[in-house]
Design a protein around this nucleic acid. Structure first.
Length: 363
DNA sequence: AACCCGGGGCG
DNA sequence: CGCCCAGGGTT
């Protein structure tokens, strides 16, 4: 462990810059003829799309809109057309809006400080930092996804970066490293180096720690699990619901009803459901049914995107068919030959198969 | 099929 | 302020 790497910004920057000079990418289109306009456009494109896809878009965009004035002077539909295929069209609209603001409010010159840059539509703190540091030599930190990952691992920052407290901590660290004494070339290269490090070495799932210039200072590596950082979004624990499913069998047939179009498994065929075992038993009593044979199958959990459903299947064998079980809904006595014909939710299909397996139907 | 992304918009 | 969304790529 090398604590100086974490505490001394000069040592940290020297390591990062040295790596960048040896291995970093320096020939990307937006790294040529660097100016605020080109950096801005590239940053917005790179927020949503990977480098290899962005390159041709960037070239076409620059050929058509070579300057912020050219962009401001063009109809927004023209801008959207050159954005077509990238998605996130609100960003293209913001691009055009911001170009107009730069043209009209700032006399065609990008503001030379982060706070004013941030007032432009579509430019937040990170994009402003990238424009300021890369194209203006201003010592501003950035915190895009790549840098977030590098810093969260290096310092083993607990928590999800979407949480404000965690983001604030990461910004604080980024600021600490970016503020060290430096010259203008350093500032540009340092920012590019940090993004490159995150994009090419400190990747989300397979970080190349063995060749990382920061490995000896990396707390996540010291803990033995760099990919644990940054912590992922806490999946809000899903509520657990329970249902009791009535599997009525008569000879080789099972009673299914068609679910309403709205709600889960809309329009699919399913077993009658009840909110509790008591409700199920009460229903049976109302139907004048006193089952001789009743089996509770092993309850199991089915998980939806937004909740868990604990399914308690209750199997009952009848000696005669009931006329109607679920008031007002289509029902059908189902046998195995219909397996392809009816739309069944996955757990229902599973349940039917379990039953057939346990009690092979004697036809 | 879940996760990810910088910034905007909403309650 | 916190929460959700966009929209397609990666894993």
């Amino acid at each position: 462990m090398n604590p100086e790497l974490l505490q001394n910004a000069d040592i940290f920057r020297a390591r990062v810059l040295d790596w960048y000079h040896q291995f970093g990418r320096k020939d990307l289109p937006w790294q040529q003829n660097v100016n605020p306009y080109r950096v801005w456009i590239s940053e917005i494109m790179l927020q949503q799309t990977q480098v290899s896809t962005v390159i041709p878009y960037f070239e076409r965009f620059m050929a058509r809109f070579p300057s912020v004035q050219a962009l401001a002077d063009s109809p927004v539909d023209d801008v959207l057309q050159h954005w077509s295929g990238l998605g996130y069209y609100a960003r293209a609209r913001n691009l055009h809006k911001a170009a107009c603001v730069v043209d009209e409010v700032f006399a065609g010159e990008f503001p030379r400080n982060v706070d004013t840059l941030t007032t432009l539509p579509g430019i937040g703190r990170s994009t402003a930092g990238a424009i300021a540091s890369i194209s203006m030599g201003i010592a501003a930190p950035i915190l895009d996804g790549n840098v977030k990952r590098v810093l969260a691992r290096l310092h083993a920052i607990e928590g999800w970066p979407g949480d404000k407290k965690v983001a604030d901590r990461l910004w604080q660290i980024a600021e600490g490293y970016s503020m060290a004494e430096q010259n203008r070339a350093d500032t540009r290269e340092y920012t590019q180096a940090m993004m490159d490090l995150g994009a090419t070495l400190c990747t989300r799932s397979k970080p190349a720690c063995t060749v990382c210039p920061l490995v000896d200072g990396c707390k996540a590596v010291a803990e033995g699990n760099p990919t644990a950082y940054p912590h992922s979004k806490p999946k809000k624990d899903k509520p657990v619901k329970a249902t009791w499913m009535l599997m009525l069998q008569h000879k080789g047939e099972l009673l299914l009803y068609r679910r309403p179009d709205q709600g889960i498994w809309g329009g699919l065929w399913s077993f009658p459901e009840f909110g509790s075992e008591d409700a199920l038993q009460q229903h049976l009593a109302l139907q004048g049914l006193k089952p001789r044979q009743q089996t509770s199958l092993e309850p199991f959990r089915h998980t939806f995107s937004h909740y868990h459903l604990d399914i308690h299947p209750i199997h009952i064998t009848l000696s005669r068919k009931l006329p109607s079980v679920m008031e007002g809904l289509d029902q059908v006595w189902y046998n195995e030959s219909q397996i392809e014909q009816l739309g069944l939710a996955a757990p229902i299909k599973k349940l039917i198969q379990i039953l057939h397996h346990a009690n092979p139907v004697k036809q």
